[in-house]
């Protein structure tokens, strides 16, 4: 029973983290039909920016509680700088190309960002443990959990609810859904698709960076984290169905729970299990669990 509880709680924490790192990816795909390989690099940039912003804040001797604000600020900063830069400067030249070509384009961006990050922040591991340590831990039964994990869960729920409300309740959200549904009709009825793309991509980058910034206190930030995260994010969004926000949530829960189970019950298959589930879902439902039906061709 105790172990079951531990699996569920670990699963919830891990799922929350996965949702934050994957939701931006599925948002961008849904609206722009771009499977953004560089998503992992933007996550890494967010993590690096968090160490820089947070580090600066703490070095100035400001109250440590403000470092949480700095994590968020780091993500917003990365989003506002990298988002428009990549979308306006590069992706805009590529619209209309094949989806696979766009994957290759973002793969190239991934490669470029890998080295730019190294050039900007060096290759040595960086860290910003204060926001993590500051909160201490709490107990559930006999199990101890860092309170910071609770923050991740809350942020993840907040992001999910905010996105759902935005898409379902606001005018801008409905515009976005129109674009997700049918790009051509959307532009025919006068929606400024170009601007929607810019805003969506920036928001997606911001979410990736937020994932990185919130993770930074729990890991050592070093080269290679981008490549690891992107395949996990792929697994999550592919399981849920590319472009579906609900799918990303479901995918995150599935991957999170499976991994938590593996960690406790069968540690050898921990990494394997995630991709096995991804492959299994793709085999049973080739387009993921929440997929749109296809139109007739002839």
């Amino acid at each position: 029973m105790n172990q079951f509880l531990a699996i569920v709680i670990d699963g919830i924490i891990y799922s929350s983290w996965l949702f934050i790192i994957a939701v931006g990816l599925t948002l961008i795909y849904g609206v722009m039909k771009i499977l953004n390989v560089a998503h992992g690099s933007l996550y890494a940039l967010g993590a690096y920016a968090a160490t820089a912003f947070g580090g600066y804040w703490l070095a100035q001797g400001y109250p440590p509680i403000g470092s949480y604000g700095m994590l968020v600020l780091a993500a917003v900063f990365v989003g506002l700088v990298a988002g428009p830069l990549i979308e306006r400067g590069l992706l805009r030249l590529m619209y209309g190309k094949d989806e696979v070509v766009l994957v290759l384009v973002t793969y190239a961006v991934f490669l470029i960002l890998e080295d730019m990050t190294k050039l900007a922040f060096g290759v040595d591991p960086l860290s910003i443990p204060e926001p993590y340590g500051l909160l201490g831990s709490f107990e559930i039964g006999e199990l101890m959990y860092p309170t910071y994990s609770l923050v991740l869960v809350l942020v993840s729920v907040f992001v999910a609810v905010a996105l759902a409300l935005f898409l379902g309740r606001t005018r801008h959200g409905k515009v976005l859904q129109a674009v997700i549904h049918d790009r051509e009709i959307a532009s025919a009825v006068g929606i400024n698709v170009s601007r929607v793309y810019l805003v969506t991509f920036t928001a997606g980058v911001m979410l990736a960076a937020l994932g990185g910034a919130l993770t930074a206190p729990t890991i050592s930030v070093q080269p290679g984290i981008a490549a690891e995260v992107i395949v996990l994010a792929f697994a999550v969004v592919v399981i849920g169905g590319l472009g579906s926000l609900g799918g990303a949530a479901l995918g995150a829960v599935i991957v999170g729970m499976v991994r938590a189970w593996a960690v406790h019950k069968w540690p050898e298959v921990e990494l394997f299990s995630v991709y096995a589930v991804m492959a299994l879902v793709l085999i049973m439902r080739p387009k993921g669990l929440f997929a749109a039906p296809e139109a007739r061709k002839i």
Binding site: E99, V103, V231, V269, L271, F272, A276, M278
Partner: peptide, 28 residues
């Protein structure tokens, strides 16, 4: 299995299979 897949779905499923091997080898 893969012969049924196209485009990014082919890319993703083949990626998943290679990562499965990676995950297995890392722990063997």
């Amino acid at each position: 299995l893969l012969a049924k897949y196209r485009d990014i779905f082919f890319a993703m499923l083949s990626l998943a299979f290679s990562m499965i091997l990676y995950g297995l080898l890392v722990k063997t």
